[in-house]
Amino acid sequence: MATTDAENHYAEGWGWGRWDWLYAEYMWVWVALAVLTLVEVFIPEPEIFAALFSAIPGISTVGPVESLIAYLDQLQFNRVFVVVSLIVLALVKTWLVAWYYMHLIAEKPAIILVACAPFVFATFLTVGIFPWQGAYL
C-alpha cells in the first residue's frame, strides 16, 4: 500500500496519532485567529466597539461600561501605529494558518522554503515599486 503524507508524519512522530492534542491545537489556533481578527477591527476603528456595547440593552447604562463606551468613542490610535500593527497582525495570522492549518509545522524544510518564496518576492516587489518620494500613510 502506498503511504500517504499523513501516515508518514505519524510514523515520524509528528503528533498525528495524538488526536486530542491535534484537536486542541487546531481549535486554539481557530480561537487565536478569531481574537486577532477582533483586534484588527478594533485598532483602526475603536468606535465600532463603542457602538457594539451601546447596542446591548441594560449594559450601556452601567457606570463603568458607560465610561468605557465614552472612552472608546474618543479613542484614536496614531496612524503609523495602526498601519504597522495591522501589518504585523496580518503576518501573525498568515503564519498561524500556514504553520498549523497547512501543516508546515510537520513539513520538510524544502517545502517550508518553497512556501516562503512568495513572501520574499512580495517584499522585494512592494519595496521596489512603492512610491517612496512623497508617500504618506
Partner: peptide, 9 residues
C-alpha cells in the same frame, strides 16, 4: 501567491 503579491503591491 505571487499573483496576489503582484496585485497587492
Amino acid at each position: 501567491a505571487m499573483t496576489f503579491a503582484g496585485l497587492l503591491a
